[in-house]
Simulated scan of single mutants.
Amino acid sequence: MKKQSLLEIFLASLKLGLTSFGGPVAHLGYFKDEYIDKRKWLDDRTYADVIALCQFLPGPASSQVGMAIGMLRGGLAGGILSWIGFTLPSVLVLVLFAFVYQSYTLGDATWISSLKIVAVAVVAHALIGLGKKLTPDRPRLAIALTSALAMLLFASAWLQIVVIIVAGIIGYILFVGKEQEANIQFHVPFSKKHGIFALILFTILIIGLPIGALLLNSQSLNLMDTFYRVGSLVFGGGHVVLPLLEREVVPDLITSGEFLAGYGMAQAVPGPLFTFASYLGAMINGIPGAILATIAIFLPSFLLVIGTLPFLQELRTRPRFQGILTGVNASVVGILLAAFYDPVFTSSIFSGADFALALILFFLLNVWKLPAWFIVILGIVFGEVLTYV
């Protein structure tokens, strides 16, 4: 892999890390705009297959999708650089905030509300693009609609896994043997042996870290065990990780007030919410704690993506698995549709002015094809203007 290509991966992901506000569903919209529509690193179906794969894995799904795209583009180094670029901005802000958090009260700032409205436009744009590609007929539209209804009525991280599994079974029954659009082949620049080794290492760490922490009574090992375990066991990502982290660190390591202050700031920064671990690590043990906590909570995601990605290409060429993926991809559209309503829409749109701004930004993105980063800037500017109207 050429250095220029690796630099491209880092710069592209860094731009996303600076502009991807709105949570994991919005991140997938920003990824589609930058990686798929603009740079053509993957086709729509492969992108959907990667999303489906990451939905099955514990950890932050949007970060895992970014890692996987980086790996497909530039190998393991590309995956690491894509993760660094996407997470670095929010890590730096949250670590700085850990030292001065009492001076900040950003929760009611107008620009925060505007960025949430930007996320509404970005997610709607991504949903339309994926929907056209992945639900072109009535059976797949029915799967997407049923998945959305299930998530809206009985929302939970575990139900999401059930919905995906059921959709895969339906896809196996309905779509196996039917003519499908040919998959565009992609090259995974590491072997299945690497994947198996990564899965073995993942298992060794999740078993060995608690034992080592108990035997050695090391603060660093205890910290790594805590955040690695959380990163390994959370399905659904995002806000699901917060109650688990709270049980682990409050009140033994930090106070409830310190936890809630960091949580509020984490909502205001771009990139993955899992970087909240950086704030907690800094509060517990300064810069070394921040680095250790950040690496520990994301390490399971790296190992799981490396462990599963080499098997995806072979599986997706088999007719039976293609049928399963067809159903799963349709369900992913429905799951994203449900998430578009809650939390993206419900936490962003509170008035006619909010909805008007979302409509303006959506049409600028979807019809006039303005880049997502420019939509972020316009959203902040228009949001400030509307406060005086």
Rank of each mutant, 00 (worst) to 15 (best):
Ala12Ile: 14
Ala339Ile: 04
Val25Lys: 02
Ser156Cys: 06
Ala77Gln: 14
Phe345Tyr: 15
Asn366Pro: 11
Gly22Val: 09
Leu303Glu: 03
Ala296Arg: 01
Tyr35Met: 14
Val249Thr: 09
Phe21Asn: 05
Trp368Asn: 13
Leu201Phe: 15
Thr308Gln: 00
Phe86Gly: 08
Ile161Val: 15
Ala77Phe: 07
Tyr341Ser: 12
Ser90Tyr: 14
Asp342Gln: 11
Gly231Ile: 04
Ala338Ser: 15
Val328His: 02
Ala339Lys: 01
Leu76Phe: 06
Gly171Asn: 01
Tyr30Phe: 15
Tyr172Arg: 07
Leu370Cys: 07
Leu11Asn: 09
Ala268Ser: 13
Ala68His: 01
Gly74Lys: 09
Ala261Ile: 06
Gly238Lys: 05
Phe86His: 04
Leu205Glu: 03
Phe298Trp: 04
Phe382Arg: 06
Ile207Leu: 15
Ile284Ala: 06
Met71Gly: 05
Ala148Cys: 12
Ala121Val: 01
Leu223Thr: 05
Thr105Ala: 09
Ala282Phe: 04
Gly29Pro: 11
Leu260Lys: 13
Lys132Tyr: 07
Asp43Thr: 01
Ser191Cys: 07
Leu223Ser: 02
Lys2Cys: 13
Leu159Trp: 09
Lys32Leu: 06
Leu221Tyr: 09
Leu174Ile: 12
Phe190Arg: 01
Leu273Lys: 10
Ile380Cys: 09
Leu221Ala: 12
Ala126Met: 11
Val188Leu: 03
Leu280Pro: 11
Leu359Ala: 07
Pro210Ser: 09
Glu314Gly: 06
Leu337Ile: 10
Leu304Pro: 03
Asp37Leu: 11
Ala338Lys: 13
Trp83Ser: 10
Thr387Arg: 15
Val328Lys: 01
Glu179Gln: 14
Arg247His: 12
Glu314Ala: 05
Leu244Asp: 06
Tyr30Asp: 07
Val269Cys: 01
Asn285Lys: 14
Phe10Ser: 06
Lys32Phe: 14
Thr146Pro: 00
Ile200Cys: 09
Cys54His: 05
His27Lys: 13
Leu130Cys: 08
